[in-house]
């Protein structure tokens, strides 16, 4: 991504723009709100699908591990491989590699809707690993205590592992959403729409530095809001 490169060099115009009181760039005034909404849409849906995909995957990874509730070498290794492949591919390559699949699911490989597919596929393995780590942190004695009290495996997962690991899972999910925001800018730059597209096609290709600066500011604001909300939620739910 070229955004960082240009953004760093152009902080003076921020003050200049603020001094003027408003932006006299039609791209900012008209296209920016729309692009921001597209980013929110992309990130929102991708995060949701990542949650639905990554949470069970991460829990399954933990449960099937040698120290888990139902150790299974085969399942653990197979899932581990899937997750590792997903994690080792650079996002840009994944983005392009899954285009046929994206077309099959969404019908097109252009636009915010299409970006949701690679975003989810890129973030879910990452989130799954974070969930696995969070579940592993739950005291094994507490898990065994639940078993001794007559809990089934499913009950152990839903009533012990997830609630006890919830603060960590939420922290992990926050990190994941932030990652999705940055991925979404990349997806945007290759036709996904949103803020990434705006930054690259106007800020970079058409030398409109003010567009670049404002986009960066909006993205930073997004990440701040997500992080603060996530931290707050994790803190509120942690009673340790």
């Amino acid at each position: 991504m070229s955004g960082g490169q240009v953004g760093v060099a152009t902080f003076a115009p921020v003050a200049e723009a603020q001094a003027l009181g408003a932006f006299d760039n039609r791209v900012i005034n008209e296209r920016l709100p729309e692009a921001a909404l597209e980013t929110i849409q992309m990130v929102g849906f991708s995060s949701l699908f990542t949650l639905f995909l990554g949470l069970p995957l991460g829990l399954l990874l933990h449960v099937s591990s040698p120290t888990g509730l139902r150790p299974s070498f085969l399942v653990h290794r197979a899932l581990g491989l899937v997750v590792n492949v997903g994690r080792s591919l650079p996002f840009l390559i994944l983005l392009i590699a899954v285009i046929p699949f994206t077309r099959f699911v969404v019908g097109t490989n252009i636009g915010p809707e299409a970006a949701i597919v690679p975003l989810t596929l890129g973030a879910a393995p990452f989130f799954a690993r974070l969930v696995e780590n969070a579940a592993r942190e739950v005291d094994p004695d507490t898990v065994e205590a639940a078993v001794v009290m007559g809990a089934s495996r499913m009950q152990v997962v839903t009533k012990v592992l997830v609630p006890e690991a919830l603060p960590s899972i939420i922290s992990g999910f926050t990190t994941t959403i932030v990652t999705i925001v940055s991925y979404s800018a990349m997806a945007g730059s290759v036709g996904g729409g949103g803020l990434g597209y705006l930054a690259v096609s106007y800020g970079y290709n058409r030398f409109q530095t003010d567009v670049m600066v404002v986009t960066v500011i909006v993205l930073v604001a997004f990440v701040q809001i997500i992080q603060l909300t996530g931290d707050f939620a994790a803190r509120r739910l942690d009673h340790r």
């Binding site: 004695d141 507490t142 065994e144 001794v148 009290m149 007559g150 809990a151 009673h239």
Partner: peptide, 20 residues
């Protein structure tokens, strides 16, 4: 599992669920 519900167990480190 059913039989375990007829046995009450008290643990050395109690093992309560922290978030309950």
């Amino acid at each position: 599992r059913r039989a375990r519900r007829r046995i009450g167990m008290v643990f050395q480190h109690v093992n309560l669920l922290d978030n309950r």
